[in-house]
Amino acid sequence: MTNLLRHRLFWPIAVLVVLLASNLVFSNNFFTITLQDGHLYGSLIDILRRSAPLVLVALGMTLVISTGGIDLSVGSVMAISGALACLLIGDLSNPDSTTSVLLVVGAAIALCLVFGLWNGFLVAVLGIQPIIATLILMVAGRGVAQLITDGQILNVHSAPYRVIGAGYFLAVPVSFLIAAAAVALTVALTRRTALGLLLESVGGSPTASRLAGIRARRITIMVYVFAAAFAGVAGLIYSSDVSSADSNAAGNLIELNAILAVVLGGTALTGGRFSIAGSVLGAVIITTLDITAVSVGVPVETTLLFKAIVVIILCLAQSPTFRAKVFGRFATKKAATREAVAA
């Protein structure tokens, strides 16, 4: 039992279970899954479908955070990729051609890769703090997205494009499949290759990593490229789901939610050990929370309050000083203060 309690995914899972259970009180058929027109329907399916963008962004964020960095620009990148896709599809002679749509999707993601390289360049080559470096694209990116859409909300009518965010494959939502594939890809990339080890090593101690011969610069650039690529896919899902590109709404506040998801999942903001499963759980929890808010009947935005409380509790729980002060004996407390003074 103690082992179970100590497992690092225990608390995220517990929170998720409680959230899901509390839904039962408000809606009886919360757990009912039905098959309509060959599609699965139900609140649980809805949660899976709507989690997809956040899961994707949180995946990239996890890798960035594991190196001790942070990426604030993911929301803007989402907006840009959706905007570009919708613009290009609008120009297509036949928006229902699958090949053309795939090309468009490829172009949008390619653009995001460029933005990822840009972030990585600022952080790893110019040596600018990650928060500041990615702030630049965070600010300018939405402007770029609006530039692409000419400030309009671009509506598109393209059946193949709509599949990405709102379609079903074998009765399962396509967006969920994309997110699942991304999770599988990330797990394979980090755990099947040595990337995960090297990331954790760079995040754990940059100096020791350099002396062990790790090319930290290259790896750092790579994670920002990943984060941007995943954000780009998330942007496509979002824009496809609503069949339009809204440069203001797309990915609004998602960087903060993604960071929250990563932290909820047990990855420390200081870098090092990361948990992909944890981040995915964190993302699902946040989406469930938003959906729960709706089913309970409070404004969706009120969940911010809950998030604030969660962030505060998590931060305090992660702060060694706090633990020492609150849970430690008087002696430890004194020692901690001393250390703080000495440092």
């Binding site: 099947r192 290759t193 040595a194 990337l195 080890l197 090297l198 090593s201 990593s209 062990a212 011969g213 790790i214 090319r215 790896i219």
Partner: peptide
């Protein structure tokens, strides 16, 4: 394994 792995690069895990 860190140094050996670093020398091999991330794509070729031991």
């Amino acid at each position: 394994i860190l140094a050996l792995q670093a020398a091999r690069g991330w794509t070729r895990p031991i």
